[in-house]
Structures are given as C-alpha cells and as structure tokens.
C-alpha cells in the first residue's frame, strides 16, 4: 500500500525534498469528476460533470455558491470542499458585516490557501483532498483561481481539474484567444461545455442530469443551473458525446479509466501506477 517510508504523514520530507502525503492529496483530485472554469475578463463560467454513485442515486453536487459574487467548483473529496466553502461563506459574510463590501476573490482564495498550508506542516491533520476552481466578480474584475491542497493558488484564464482534465486543458489552450474575446456569457458557456465534453469517456455524453453550469460577472450574480435549465446550452453544442475519444484520449489523457461512468468513490481503487510518479511531479508545486 505504501510507496515508501516517507509517506506516513505530511510532516516528513522524502530525501529528494518531496511531501508524499500532499502528492497523494493531489491524486485524490484526479479521482473526482471533471470541472472546467473559463473567464473572458468580464465574466467567469464554471461547468462541471456530476456523478451518481448508482443508477437510482442522485448526482453529487459539484458547484457551490459562496456569495452573490463568488462560487466554487470542486473535484475530489466533496466533504472537504464543504468545509472549505463553509469557511469561504463565513469570510464573505464577515467582509460584508465588518467592511460593508463584498470579499475580494483574491483575498478569499489566499485565505483558504493559508488554511490548507497549515495542514501540510502540522502533524495530526491531513491535507485537504479536494481541488477547487474559484470564480468571482469584484471591484478588480472577473477572476478565476485554481486551489490545490498543497496550499498553492494560481490565477488562470482557463482551468480544468479532475479526471481526464488534460483533454479539457488542451481544448482551452487551443481556443484561448476565442475565449478571451467572448462578450456574451452564452458563448463562454458553450466553450466551457466543449472543454468539458472532451473529458468524457467513450460511453458517456453530456445530459441535463449530469451537467452543471454556473456563471458570475458584470451585473450578474453567481447563479447555478441544473437539470432542465441546462438544455438550452446543450442544444448549442455540435455534439454532446466525445466523438474523437479513444484515439485522442490516449495521447492527451493522464487518466485512462475505461469505466468512467460507473466509477464511484467506492471503486476508485485503480490508481494509475505507471503515471502516478510523473503526474505527481507535474502537480507538486515546488517553485
């Protein structure tokens, strides 16, 4: 089970200066289903793929509203995300109460980053097992941040986390200019869903049940759309399933789980052993 002697806790460095517990936490994000965020400068869109544990079960919530001007999308351990979102809500309310102004997105993410950092340096706690995309609109404009359990926070124009998110990032990189010049939320949502669709495995498609759409921006409060509301955007996609999958997926993906659709927290016991080391190298923020 253990890879080596240096991963029992998050206060032990490996001889090469790595923190394995923190890297495992980053691994937990990849087990979660994908979430994509993009920003055009005036608006931010978060879209996410929801999973249901079983056919008759309900879908796991992927997008959480923090305040009128801020919301998060998660990948990884959902309970951890709830802890963090509750903390963010507390900060947002405090900011309104004490300073009579909405919480800055940058302040918010850096606060949870510092909170997460403590868990990597103190014995007796574990790092959070969740990655977040934080979207916010404030006096400094529209912002999209990616939060990682290592306590690192970076601002992106487009970001994707979760299973097969590499495919989505490839899409975002190719279409970055188009995304940045979007003026309508509608266009932005379509780009987001296109990127999300690229993360799908062969036997899946975007449906109104498994897709969440949310946005925030200029003169627009943070709103989440589920179920029937999502249909209007799905109609605008040229396809809701990933046509060009396997051939491309093998190149792009860092996670080739075949049975994505049925993967649940319970059967998520297939770590990609071969890629684990390489992927961890990419993600552990050492500089």
């Amino acid at each position: 089970m253990f890879r080596n002697n240096y991963d029992n806790d998050s206060v032990t460095y490996s001889p090469t200066g790595r923190l394995f517990q923190v890297e495992y936490a980053l691994e937990a994000i990849k087990q979660g289903s994908a979430a994509v965020g993009i920003t055009s400068g005036s608006h931010v869109v978060l879209v996410a793929l929801k999973r249901n544990a079983e056919e008759l079960g309900s879908y796991q919530k992927k997008i959480i509203k923090v305040d009128d001007h801020m919301g998060i999308a998660l990948a990884g351990l959902a309970p951890d995300a709830r802890v963090l979102s509750n903390y963010l809500r507390k900060l947002a309310m405090n900011s309104k109460l004490v300073f009579n102004r909405p919480l800055l997105t940058s302040k918010a993410v850096l606060s949870i980053a510092d909170k997460a950092q403590e868990n990597t340096q103190l014995y007796g706690s574990r790092p959070y097992g969740v990655g977040l995309l934080v979207a916010g609109w404030d006096e400094t404009g529209a912002h999209l941040y990616e939060f990682q359990p290592s306590g690192s926070v970076l601002e992106y124009n487009g970001a994707a986390i979760g299973a097969r998110s590499q495919a989505a990032r490839t899409y975002l990189e190719r279409n970055l200019d188009a995304i940045r010049s979007c003026t309508e939320i509608e266009e932005l949502v379509v780009h987001g869903l296109n990127a999300l669709r690229d993360t799908l495995s062969q036997d899946m498609e975007l449906t109104i049940q498994n897709t969440s759409v949310s946005f925030v921006g200029k003169d627009k409060d943070f709103t989440i759309h589920d179920n029937e509301d999502v249909q209007q955007w799905l109609d605008k996609l040229d396809s809701t399933s990933n046509d060009k999958n396997n051939a491309n997926d093998d190149e792009d993906d860092d996670n080739d789980e075949p049975a994505e659709g049925t993967a649940t927290a319970a059967d998520s016991t297939q770590p990609e052993l071969t890629q684990e080391g390489a992927a961890a190298d990419d993600n552990m923020e050492t500089d």
Partner: peptide
Amino acid sequence: YSGLLPDGRHFVN
C-alpha cells in the same frame, strides 16, 4: 523566496 511556495506565504504572514 524559492521552494515550496505555500510555506513561503506562511513565512511572510
């Protein structure tokens, strides 16, 4: 600072 950036933030705080 160079190294683990989140630790750097802790140091600065």
